[in-house]
């Protein structure tokens, strides 16, 4: 039960890169946010970048916008994914193989999923054409402006399409070990389909749902690829904000970009810890991650 040199040696192929690349990378991000080790010598005070951000309403708008997009898409993904996984699990064997099509968006890159959303939802896209032929709209302008509404709906759709199969995958992994006789017994004793789902199945799937939510939420919160294709001008996602500061402005604004990254990093850590604590507290110590 104690550390031996064998443990150290065996773990070193992972610990060393972890310390140098991951911890080192985060450390350098912190440093640069304080104006240390920046490509150009930075004249200002150590906390300048943070002071500037705290006084910048557009930063807060971006922050809460990212939070909203991430929370809504992760929630939809997990709920829809869990429900679909349960329905797929109930399929007879021969049909279950065909249901493997759910893995398609898992294979597609995020940028391709964003492209699919563009093709379907753009004002002259497939859905607009369908609405036209069904007589709901007469001209292009009547189709609701889904992608540029200012609410991030396009990004939410893309993240949800990518997230549903991911949640399904996690939930399926638990369902294969789930005894179908529990469901059958409940049905024989007269429980309704809804009752069975909510009181018997759902509590057992909760660990996978929590894991899925944490991963999907944090990914959508900080990722770049989908917003790069689907973002609206403002408020933008934080990652786009950072990208613009890093690449499109002069080097003097580098600490600001890094300060946003530091805030994102700390937020992610606090979120993981707080979420696991709360869930642990709710159902007595079942591990989530």
């Amino acid at each position: 039960m104690s550390w031996t040199s064998k443990h150290f040696l065996g773990l070193s192929p992972l610990i060393l890169p972890y310390l140098v690349l991951f911890c080192g990378g985060v450390f350098l991000t912190f440093c640069q946010s304080f104006g240390v080790l920046t490509p150009l010598p930075y004249g200002g005070g150590a906390l300048d970048a943070y002071v500037k951000l705290m006084g910048d309403p557009s930063f807060f708008a971006s922050f809460f916008f990212s939070l909203g997009v991430a929370a809504v898409s992760a929630l939809f993904s997990v709920l829809a994914g869990t429900f679909l996984a349960y329905r797929v699990w109930q399929l007879p064997r021969q049909l279950a193989t065909a249901a493997l099509v759910y893995k398609i968006p898992l294979i597609l890159p995020h940028i391709s999923v964003a492209f699919v959303i563009l093709v379907f939802w753009s004002p002259s896209g497939i859905l607009a054409s369908m609405a036209h032929s069904l007589g709901f709209i007469q001209t292009l302008q009547q189709f609701p402006n889904v992608l540029y509404s200012g609410w991030g709906i396009g990004m939410i759709l893309a993240y949800t399409l990518k997230g549903i199969p991911f949640a399904m995958l996690l939930v399926m992994a638990l369902l294969v070990r789930f005894d179908i006789r529990q469901v059958q017994t409940a049905a024989m004793l007269g429980a309704s389909g809804l009752r069975i789902f909510f009181t018997i199945v759902l509590p057992r799937l909760a660990p996978a749902m929590h894991t899925g939510f944490i991963i999907l939420f944090l990914y959508s919160f900080g990722a770049f690829d989908i917003p790069y294709i689907l973002s609206e001008s403002r408020p933008g996602m934080l990652s786009i904000h950072v990208y613009n500061l890093y690449f499109k402005h002069d080097l003097a604004r580098r600490p600001e970009a890094m300060a946003i990254l530091v805030i994102m990093f700390c937020f992610a850590l606090v979120f993981i810890i707080a979420y696991s604590k709360i869930v642990n507290h709710l159902d007595n110590g079942v591990r989530k991650l």
């Binding site: 991951f22 080192g24 990378g25 350098l28 080790l37 992610a268």
Partner: peptide, 20 residues
Amino acid sequence: LLLTPALVPPMTFAMGLHFL
């Protein structure tokens, strides 16, 4: 700790590493 790199936004360490 070893699982965090897959959870935190990759930008947060990649951009610091870029300098290195």
